[in-house]
Simulated assay, not measured.
Amino acid sequence: MLIKVAICNFQDNGAGNRALWQGMHERLKSLGLHLLLRQEMWGAEENAGALATAAERVLGLTGIIGEGCCTALYYSPDLFTPVENYTPITGPMWVLPPTVRGLRLRGTTPSAVPLLVSSFHLNYSSPATRLPEAERLTQWADRWDRSANRAGTVHWPALIGGDTNSYPTPGTPGDPALPVLDQIADEPHRAHRSYLGPDGVRRMDDRPDATLRTAGLHDVARHLATTRGDTAALAPTMDACSTHGPDARVDRLYASPELLPALRTVEVIDMHDLSDHHTVVATFDQKTLTHILNNPLTRTA
């Protein structure tokens, strides 16, 4: 069996445009997802959580709505069980706080580790803020717990994804090219997507990607492109527009290295009629993932 994991940035504006909301959720349901990392869940908890409940009903998944409805996780209750009492402190720098949970995979042994899953949304307008947000995300690449069943501590593999509002580090064949700063028509957007280097030159912001990969997390689309030649995995997740510049791959999924043997595919699903972001879907082999979680990285120090 393949486990399907998706990233979807879509404004939960069901009260304002119910047909659009319904169309997006029906499209997501058709993908047969087991994990969904959502961003921009505005209004999900209003009216006693009516919109959040409606999404669960359409998707057939159980939702965890994060602080301020900024992000959320949806998971298949037939496949995953949340680890109780694990809500890490995200820190004061977050404008749009992430949602994070440990999810135990069905069929793993009692001594298996959970999968540490996070849906995040980095700051839209501040490259200076995005950098510490990305640095803070790296804490979930570094979760080690004492194990009653093993000597030393065991590593929780991380799977984190969302809207980075920035670009992957250039150099991967097939990746969309970085915008040229002075060719972005919207001048505020130039500031939103670039940073001032130490030499006084403004550069397009790829620092969150560099930070996450320095911490050992792997961009799964980049991994497939570089190890298997699957450049289709690098398809843009936002289309070119007159104000913001060319096609860009701003929505990305990152995984701890031990999860990569279970990775099978990455596909970008066209959502142009429903959202300004396309949906990224990655598949993982359940048998291989079960083996990884049953046999976690262990250290004695």
Rank of each mutant, 00 (worst) to 15 (best):
Q11G: 07
K287W: 03
T153S: 15
T169N: 13
R18E: 15
H189Y: 13
P173C: 11
T172S: 08
P110L: 10
P170A: 06
R249L: 13
T237Q: 05
T81F: 06
A240K: 13
Q11W: 12
H291L: 11
H291Y: 07
R193G: 06
C241N: 12
P110S: 12
L212Q: 05
L33F: 09
I184E: 02
R222T: 14
A112W: 00
E67V: 04
H272A: 12
T53K: 14
V117R: 05
W144R: 07
R264Y: 01
H218P: 05
L33I: 14
E67R: 13
A6R: 08
V58L: 07
A210Y: 01
L131K: 02
L274Q: 05
P208E: 00
H25L: 13
G216K: 04
S125Y: 06
T109R: 15
V100K: 03
P110W: 02
D145A: 12
K4D: 07
I184P: 00
H25A: 08
E45F: 06
A148P: 08
T288I: 08
P179I: 09
A112C: 03
D12P: 07
R143L: 03
A112D: 02
I160R: 00
C8F: 03
T108E: 01
G102N: 15
H223Q: 04
G66K: 00
P157H: 03
D285S: 00
G107K: 05
D182W: 15
V180Q: 12
M93C: 02
R101S: 11
L297N: 04
G16E: 11
N295R: 08
L20F: 06
E84K: 04
R136P: 11
P179D: 14
R249Y: 10
V268K: 00
A301H: 08
T211Y: 04
C69N: 12
A248F: 09
R57M: 12
T265W: 01
V117W: 05
R213D: 09
H189G: 00
T109M: 11
E187V: 09
L122T: 07
N85F: 13
R207L: 15
L73Y: 01
S76I: 11
P246T: 08
D219V: 03
L28N: 01
T153C: 11
R143P: 02
I64T: 08
N294Q: 07
L289A: 05
G229S: 12
A301N: 10
L35E: 01
L263W: 00
D175Q: 15
V154E: 03
V113A: 05
H34G: 06
A177L: 15
M24Q: 09
V280K: 00
L96N: 06
G91W: 06
D199N: 10
Y74W: 08
D163C: 06
P157F: 00
T138L: 07
P170S: 13
Q286V: 10
T237C: 05
E135G: 04
A232D: 08
P296H: 06
A52R: 12
D175R: 10
K287S: 15
A255K: 00
D209W: 07
R130A: 12
A112P: 01
N149L: 04
P82G: 09
G23P: 14
M1E: 14
A141Y: 00
